[in-house]
C-alpha cells in the first residue's frame, strides 16, 4: 500500500513559539524546543520527524510563515 511520508523544515529564527502548529499536527510530529532562538522564543521543531505525513496543516496555520513542508509517496 502506498504511504505518504513528510518532512517539515522550520525557520527557527522566525518562529515565535506560539505552539499553534504543535496542537494542529495530527501526528504529534512537532514540539517546542527547550532551547530558545535569538529572540528568546522556544521555537518549534520536528521532535518526532518519523511521524510526519506531510499534511501541511502546521505550515498553513503558522502565523509567521516559518514552516516548509515536503512529502513523498513511498511503497
Amino acid at each position: 500500500m502506498a504511504k505518504i511520508k513528510g518532512a517539515v523544515v522550520v525557520d527557527r529564527e522566525r518562529c515565535k513559539g506560539c505552539e499553534v502548529c504543535v496542537v494542529t499536527c495530527p501526528t504529534e510530529t512537532l514540539a517546542l524546543a527547550t532551547e530558545v532562538n535569538s529572540k528568546g522564543y522556544h521555537y518549534c521543531y520536528p521532535a518526532n520527524p518519523e511521524a510526519c505525513i506531510g499534511c501541511s496543516n502546521c505550515a498553513v496555520v503558522c502565523p509567521d510563515g516559518c514552516i516548509t513542508v515536503y512529502k513523498v509517496k513511498i511503497g
Binding site: 505552539e19 505550515a59 496555520v61 503558522c62 502565523p63 509567521d64 516548509t68
Partner: peptide, 23 residues
Amino acid sequence: AYKKSRLMTDNILSYCPGCGHGT
C-alpha cells in the same frame, strides 16, 4: 508540499506570537 507565498516578504511580522493576523 507547502511553503510560504513568494508574495510574503521576508520581514518578520510585527504581530504577537499566535496572532491570527499573520495567518
